[in-house]
C-alpha cells in the first residue's frame, strides 16, 4: 500500500528508479517524494526514535523529507525531480549506517 494515489496525468514517459533496492517505475515529472510515496509509506526515519516520516508540507518548508541516495547524496525529496537510475534509501535518518 502507498500513501499517495495518482489520479491524473498518468500518460508520461516512464523513469526507472530504485527504492530500498526495489526497481520502481516512476513517471517523468514526478518528484522523488511522489515516487517514493506512490510506492510505500515512508521517506525516512526520524533521528530521535519517532518512527517513519513521509514529509509534511510537500513544498520545501518542513525539511522533513530529506532523503539519501545509495551513493551518499542527500536531497530534499519534495523539490527534487526523479532522474533515471536514482537509487534511494528510506530506511535511515538523514545519514548512512543507521537503522
Amino acid at each position: 500500500m502507498s500513501l499517495l494515489k495518482r489520479i491524473a496525468d498518468t500518460d508520461r514517459p516512464k523513469v526507472t528508479i530504485f527504492i530500498d533496492g526495489v526497481e520502481i517505475q516512476a513517471l517523468l515529472g514526478d518528484t522523488v517524494l511522489t515516487a517514493i510515496l506512490l510506492h510505500g509509506k515512508r521517506v525516512r526515519v526520524s533521528e530521535f526514535g519517532d518512527g517513519p516520516r513521509a514529509g509534511f508540507c510537500l513544498m520545501g518548508v518542513c525539511q522533513d523529507c530529506w532523503v539519501r541516495s545509495h551513493n551518499g547524496k542527500i536531497f530534499q525529496a519534495c523539490t527534487t525531480p526523479v532522474e533515471e537510475g536514482m537509487s534511494l534509501v528510506t530506511t535511515i535518518g538523514n545519514s548512512s549506517n543507521e537503522s
Binding site: L3, L4, K5, R6, I7, A8, D9, T10, G29, D30, T31, T34, L37, L38, K41, R42, V43, P52, R53, A54, G55, F56, C57, L58, M59, V61, C62, C78
Partner: peptide, 19 residues
Amino acid sequence: PGVFTLGGAQVSLKTQGCA
C-alpha cells in the same frame, strides 16, 4: 506518514496529479 499540510495537499494535486 499520511499527515500533510493544506499547502502540501494543493501542491500534490496541482503539480503532481496525486491525491
